[in-house]
Amino acid sequence: MRAVDSAAQMGAVVEAALAAGINHLETAPAYGPAEAHLGAALRQLAIPRERLLLTSKLLPGVDLATGQAQLQSSLQRLGLARLDNLAVHGLNRPEHLEWALQGDGAALLRWAQAEGLVGQVGFSSHGSTDLIERALASGRFGFCSLHLHLFDQERLPLARQALAAGIGVMAISPADKGGRLYDPPPELVEDCAPFTPLQLAYRFLLDAGVSTLTLGAARPEDLAWAVALAGADGPLSAVEKQALARLAEAGRRRLGAGACGQCRACLPCPSGVPIPALLRLRNLALGHGMTPFASERYNLIGRAGHWWEALDASACQQCGACLPRCPHGLPIPDLLAATHQLLAAPPRRRLWG
């Protein structure tokens, strides 16, 4: 989704990916010219088909005929007769799940597999844990792509549930949406020593058993992490565990009594405020110096449709319903107001959408 300036740029990234040992490429029609550039790169590099696993995605909600045409167009752009994986791109709302399981989406996925155009079908989701759990329990999907991050562990139980059921799990953007870990602040570098933040975050996910870790590369040099992490699977070492413990302790120390433990006991909010998600951003900004990332994410709220939260902390009505629920006695309305003051800024455009 990032190497989209030209087919030459995409080709250089794909060639570097193969040299680094990567064999899974994921794209989507929603990523501008990415499919066309990837198809041109694959033809130019003449990569044997069996060397690669290729995934593309389709947005939910289309009728059967439109979805069939979109899939055929994807295959044509990629120069392929068959995708290894087809994902529902952004299974984020209940109506998306209904579409995939019972509506035209269900017919589309059945047709794609019956025609031999795709191998397995799966989904990516930025939705609620309840929605993802229902999707996994449906038995329809062979893989899922989820937000799984060292600094956002809410969906890790779902990932473990999926893995136990034989469902493949891909972590969405551990480096970027996981905290812009390729450009860490000094506090975070210090907290993760002797490892880099990105190295520790990837090792954390590998230890959790996550099947695939994505590297959103725009340049060949962006794949240096894949080379550095080659063979870095297996359980965490004692030194890595110690580093993770120091990282957590450093965050708690800086946050003091205002640290949100992300237990979610405060929900549901009568005003619909996503309290844990907002206080997690506060945790990152004050606990680890990750204010630029936290502010970037905060200011996408309400501007990214169903891909991110709809309400920021300014929607808090100070009703106090959350106060008796918090096991730590946090002054949640005050913390939300402070979070808004800390992070609110002129919004930036999303990369896609």
Rank of each mutant, 00 (worst) to 15 (best):
D207N: 08
P60D: 04
A285F: 12
Q318K: 11
G122H: 12
Q153P: 04
P347A: 03
A238P: 11
R134L: 02
G103Q: 04
G119E: 02
Q102K: 14
P331Q: 00
A201G: 01
A337R: 02
A337T: 05
R280V: 07
G216R: 09
R254P: 06
W99M: 09
R348W: 00
A250R: 15
I22Q: 01
G103M: 07
M170G: 08
Q76D: 13
D191K: 12
Q161I: 00
N92V: 04
L279P: 13
G116M: 08
L244D: 03
E187A: 15
A106E: 13
G39F: 03
L59P: 06
C263D: 08
L64M: 05
A337G: 09
A36N: 03
V210F: 01
L150R: 13
K177C: 07
Q9L: 09
H147C: 01
A28P: 02
Q317K: 14
A277M: 04
W225I: 05
P174L: 04
L188G: 06
A238C: 07
S74Y: 06
C266A: 08
E154L: 14
T339Y: 12
G168T: 05
Q199E: 15
A243R: 15
P292Y: 08
E249N: 13
L148W: 01
R280I: 09
E15N: 12
A250Q: 13
V14W: 01
R348V: 06
L244Y: 10
Q102T: 07
C269Y: 11
E187K: 12
P29E: 08
A175I: 13
C260G: 10
H340Q: 10
P270Q: 14
L108W: 05
Y202M: 10
D233N: 12
L330T: 03
Q318H: 15
L188A: 01
S128N: 08
G103D: 02
L215E: 09
S56D: 13
G79V: 05
E296F: 15
I172T: 11
H149I: 03
P29D: 07
L59V: 03
P29L: 02
S145V: 02
G116P: 14
R77T: 04
P333A: 02
W99E: 10
Q9V: 06
G178T: 06
V14M: 07
A107M: 06
L200H: 07
A41E: 12
P331H: 04
G320N: 14
A7G: 07
R252Q: 10
E240M: 07
A313Q: 09
A107H: 15
V169A: 06
L351I: 00
Q9N: 12
Q44P: 01
G353Y: 04
V239I: 07
C263N: 06
Q262R: 08
P220S: 04
A238H: 11
L206G: 15
I22N: 01
A114K: 13
A28M: 00
M1G: 06
F204T: 10
R303V: 02
A19N: 01
L336P: 03
G287Y: 06
R43Q: 15
A217P: 15
R110M: 12
A34S: 15
L78D: 12
E50P: 04
D152G: 05
A69W: 02
Y298V: 14
P276N: 05
A175Y: 00
L323G: 09
C326M: 07
A345W: 00
R140D: 03
G139R: 12
V14N: 06
